[in-house]
């Protein structure tokens, strides 16, 4: 078997996204490299979701360029889990099989790969339950399993634990860790600073569509360089 082609690094140069006269993303230069877990921080409306949509290829930039290490504009070997994942009206397992089918996985292998993915997130016992009646935490894990089953080189996660209780959030974090350990590049947004500390290797701090900081996580939390980022950390931890 041939060595799989390499998707990363992803280069963004002068990328802007404007809609209805508003600039949501403003001339961003960014390089996303393999290996690390990148966490995007920033206040509500900063443009985190838009930035990830641009990178994932759901939105076309209105200015600048987004370039993968491969020729296509939207290569297959990447996946995204949304802030509010959409489950199809079918069983949990069938949801994963559906994604595998679209990814071109032969019919004979889908069931086995779907069950393996469900087992990795601890959902094998509810494989045949309708996906839409699962709890929020279960749906979030299923969304991760669905993305993971595709064995992407890059996985975008948009606030994957936003509406989960602390226990469920920890479970999801463990899954993200496992996906990373299995060799997938993680790009994730969150508002949970504790989570960012636990998971991030690298922080991108976004404010009003601009990247204000791009630093190693340890350094960021020790001494943020931008005033906005410092205030953001303060605001989140008012007792300090």
């Amino acid at each position: 078997m041939a060595e799989p082609r390499r998707l990363l690094p992803l280069q963004m140069s002068e990328v802007s996204y404007r809609i209805n006269g508003r600039t949501l993303i403003d001339r961003i230069d960014l390089s996303i490299r393999t290996g690390t877990r990148t966490v995007i921080l920033g206040p509500n409306g900063a443009g985190k979701s838009v930035l990830m949509r641009l990178a994932h290829g759901l939105l076309e930039p209105t200015g600048g360029q987004i370039r993968w290490n491969v020729p296509e504009a939207r290569p297959r070997e990447q996946a995204m889990v949304f802030q509010r994942p959409v489950m199809l009206r079918r069983s949990a397992r069938a949801n994963i099989e559906y994604a595998l089918k679209l990814a071109g996985v032969p019919a004979g292998q889908r069931a086995e790969r779907a069950m393996a993915a469900l087992a990795r997130v601890g959902l094998e016992t509810i494989a045949h339950n309708p996906a839409r009646v699962l709890s929020g935490g279960e749906q979030q894990r299923l969304a991760l399993a669905r993305a993971w089953a595709l064995e992407p080189q890059v996985l975008f996660l948009d606030e994957p634990t936003a509406s989960l209780d602390p226990g469920a959030a920890r479970e999801v974090e463990a899954i993200i860790d496992a996906i990373h350990a299995a060799g997938t590049k993680i790009v994730m947004s969150t508002h949970n600073l504790g989570q960012a500390r636990r998971l991030a290797d690298e922080i991108l701090y976004l404010q009003a569509g601009r990247i204000e900081e791009s630093t190693a996580a340890a350094e960021f939390f020790r001494q943020p360089r931008s005033a906005h980022a410092a205030a953001f950390i303060e605001g989140e931890l008012p007792w300090r």
């Binding site: 949509r53 994932h56 759901l58 297959r76 996946a79 995204m80 949304f82 994942p85 959409v86 199809l88 009206r89 079918r90 559906y98 994604a99 679209l102 990814a103």
Partner: peptide
């Protein structure tokens, strides 16, 4: 569904079939 289906790589015909079924 639009973003999710596009993210999974569903084309127009595939999206139509999925939406009708769902």
């Amino acid at each position: 569904y639009a973003e999710q289906l596009k993210s999974l790589g569903a084309g127009l015909t595939q999206s139509i079939r999925t939406l009708l079924w769902d």
